[in-house]
């Protein structure tokens, strides 16, 4: 039950992109279509989970003063593995993600979970936390990518949804569109939370 809580908190309540506002760089850069967004999301999910496990295993041996370099080495190793796998089996995706794949090493969300959670918890909760955060990150990436691809290209996952009558505004798949879409999603989530709060407080009074 507790593990389930650790998993679900990453999905919405502490969503890395929309709530913690971490790792916005990939959320802007590789979300111009769903395929790239999903690829990046799953890669980060893999890296964050493996890294949480390794940090959690070694949490008692790592001296606090050198913990950040140790975390970075751990992340870099896992990212290298992920890159080699992607290059071998999904070369097109590997090419599309380009430099951002190597940049996974310095994604704030991965270091943050290692520091905040994995270094203080046992292996299983750390793994579940990594999975949940990774899933939340993937959901965020895919929703941004989906909105941007539908509006900016009229397609979803490469399938043309909207016909030739639709003239997509290019800006949505350019960088400014990413900022605008993320802003609107965060705004919508805040509005939803606010309404929910109002409803619960109003319910409490009755």
């Amino acid at each position: 039950m507790n593990l389930w809580k650790e998993f679900t908190k990453g999905l919405i309540a502490e969503n890395p992109i929309f709530r913690l506002a971490l790792s916005l760089c990939p959320a802007l850069a590789v979300t111009s279509n769903v395929y790239n967004a999903l690829g990046m999301g799953l890669t980060v999910m893999f890296v964050i989970t493996c890294n949480n496990i390794s940090v959690s295993i070694f949490r008692k041996v790592i001296h606090p003063k050198v913990r950040v370099p140790v975390y970075i080495i751990s992340i870099a190793t896992i990212v290298t593995v992920a890159m080699l796998v992607l290059e071998a089996f999904l070369p097109i995706l590997f090419k599309e993600l380009g430099i951002y794949l190597s940049l996974v090493v310095v994604f704030a969300i991965i270091l943050a979970r290692a520091e905040v959670f994995a270094a203080k918890n046992k292996v299983i909760p750390a793994m579940v936390d990594g999975l949940g955060m990774g899933a939340g990150f993937t959901i965020g990436m895919v929703s941004i990518g989906g909105i941007r691809e539908i509006i900016g290209n009229g397609s979803f996952f490469g399938y043309q949804l909207l016909g030739s009558w639709y003239h997509p505004p290019l800006i949505v798949i350019l960088a400014p569109g990413g900022f605008i879409v993320i802003g609107f999603i965060i705004g919508a989530l805040n509005l939803y939370e606010k309404r929910k709060m109002e409803r619960t407080t109003a319910g409490g009074k009755i």
């Binding site: 003239h167 997509p168 505004p169 290019l170 800006i171 949505v172 350019l174 400014p176």
Partner: peptide, 8 residues
């Protein structure tokens, strides 16, 4: 600027 970037 929005339409300039969208429909150059």
């Amino acid at each position: 600027a929005f339409v300039m970037a969208s429909y150059p």
